[in-house]
């Protein structure tokens, strides 16, 4: 890790305007939770776990935030032509990737975790939490890391990382995983939900992920390590564009 790179990346990712937009974005699940409480429906546990957290936050907000930060942290350096300045320094490529990853992870996890915690507390106000709050908080933080690592690798692989990432999240994870059960082993969303299940203690009717707890933790770890390794390897052999 390199403090200078971390500070630089933080300034790149968290411009004034973007931070405001992001906070508004994080506010949406909270508002929905408030509306839910006002309407006062039954089965708040099932709603908080399966609808709010699994579907809305982990299904949509987490990958979107990770997509923005994960691809921008390193990808914007290539797009803007500033990558030369950090690559022409005596810093191991591993340190560059890890520093950039750290910042994008913290930014993603920060926004989404805040939304998860506040929205879940509101949704389960006065109800037993049964590990839902802690479980999903943990899952969001872990899932943010896996997604960011994956998208960072994509961003050193292709200049259209954002589109590829979108296709992955919303076609592969969103549609294909639902149709073909075997694909669940290759879905970060399923890892994230599986990790939540290590803590969440509710009946399957309330929340039932498709991957076992241990499978999910192992696959998430492998995916992170592998994508970080691939990103570092790719960066080592990065060639400046011919035209640029």
């Amino acid at each position: 890790m390199n403090g200078t790179l971390i500070r630089l990346t933080a300034r790149q990712l968290l411009g004034q305007k973007r931070t405001v937009l992001l906070l508004l974005f994080g506010l949406v699940p909270v508002l929905i939770a408030v509306l839910y409480r006002v309407a006062g429906n039954d089965e708040p546990q099932r709603w908080a776990a399966s609808a709010l957290n699994a579907r809305l936050i982990i299904g949509t907000f987490l990958p979107l935030a990770a997509l923005v930060f994960g691809t921008a942290a390193l990808g914007s350096e290539f797009e803007d032509g500033t990558a030369v300045y950090i690559l022409s320094k005596p810093i191991p490529r591993r340190v560059i990737v890890l520093s950039k990853l750290l910042v994008s992870w913290l930014a993603t996890a920060g926004v989404v975790l805040a939304a998860t915690v506040v929205a879940t507390i509101i949704a389960l106000w006065g109800e037993p939490r049964d590990g839902i709050l802690v479980g999903f908080a943990l899952a969001v933080v872990a899932g943010a890391l896996v997604y960011c690592a994956l998208f960072m690798w994509l961003s050193v692989l292709t200049s259209r990382a954002l589109i590829v990432g979108l296709l992955y999240v919303f076609i592969w994870e969103g549609v294909i995983t639902r149709l073909f059960a075997g694909v669940r082993f290759f879905s970060v969303r399923q890892y994230t939900l599986g990790i939540a299940d290590t803590v969440v203690d509710v009946p399957a009717r309330v929340f039932n992920p498709r991957l076992g707890e241990m499978e999910a933790v192992a696959l998430a770890t492998i995916t992170t390590a592998l994508t970080v390794y691939l990103a570092v390897r790719r960066l080592r052999r990065w060639e400046i564009g011919e035209a640029s």
Binding site: V28, W47, A51, R55, L56, G59, T60, L64
Partner: peptide, 20 residues
């Protein structure tokens, strides 16, 4: 993307789970 994908689960959840 945010327009499409953020409004979608919001609509689903507000209509199906929240009502009113």
């Amino acid at each position: 993307v945010a327009w499409f994908l953020v409004t979608w689960p919001i609509s689903g959840i507000l209509v199906a789970e929240v009502g009113g």
